[in-house]
Amino acid sequence: MSGRQRNWEALSFQIVMTVIAVLALILIVSPSLVVVIVSFTSGFSLKFPPPGYSTRWYVELWNAWQLQFAARNSVVVALWSTGLSIVLGVAAALAISRSKTLTAKLLDSLFMSPLVLPALAFGLAALMFFSLIGLPVSLLTLVIGHTIVCVPYVVRNTVAALAQLEPTLLESSAILGASRLYTFRRIVLPLIRPGIISGAFIAFMSSFDNVPVSLFLRDAATDMLPIRMWQDLEGKLDVTIAALSSVLIIATVALMAIMERATGLSKRLTG
């Protein structure tokens, strides 16, 4: 192969890869941008580009009490599920991360399995189980269901953080006479805290966004935001939903920026 041919070959490879990558990145971002732009429309439809601009749909959103009620429920459930996920998940992660036993491996697979299993099947199973034991659907059943599907994120991120922890640090602390609890509080916890926080962040977001479990475990009194939005959209394409969506997108971007500062979220998720 001559030199020129080779240059052309290398160039063609780089051009093709870069063009696809840039197009793919645009494909990922554009839907969010489009929603934010459309939400400022002055018209009644989701026409793009909008015929004019106004903030009327945000005023509309301010009065949409059904959406606000559902949003409040979603936040409450997400906070409780995240709290439970942190307590149960971090303890479990500590137990399984440094153990090489078969039990630990099996527990690890068990705790991770909600990530792969179809969540809708679990939602149905949970509904049937709660009706069997006579527990009516409520915020409590939602919290339980959400915790099961969100705890894997906390376990996974904490295990990853523990894997990077130098065992010699624990040994030195012990040799210097620190108790296990003291070592945990002063050595282990500070070092794995970013991992716990980023796991908790993802758990919170996925609870807030959960559809398959909420679908079965909620009723009119415990309406959840994603379900409310979905049902509104099935009926009519409402621009109020666009306003709400942009609020959620902007809140997500802000939270991501905070998490990036606090824990280096991006490096954490790419190993």
Partner: peptide, 8 residues
């Protein structure tokens, strides 16, 4: 961004 934005 899409991973953390609500699926709806």
């Amino acid at each position: 961004l899409p991973l953390l934005t609500s699926v709806v």
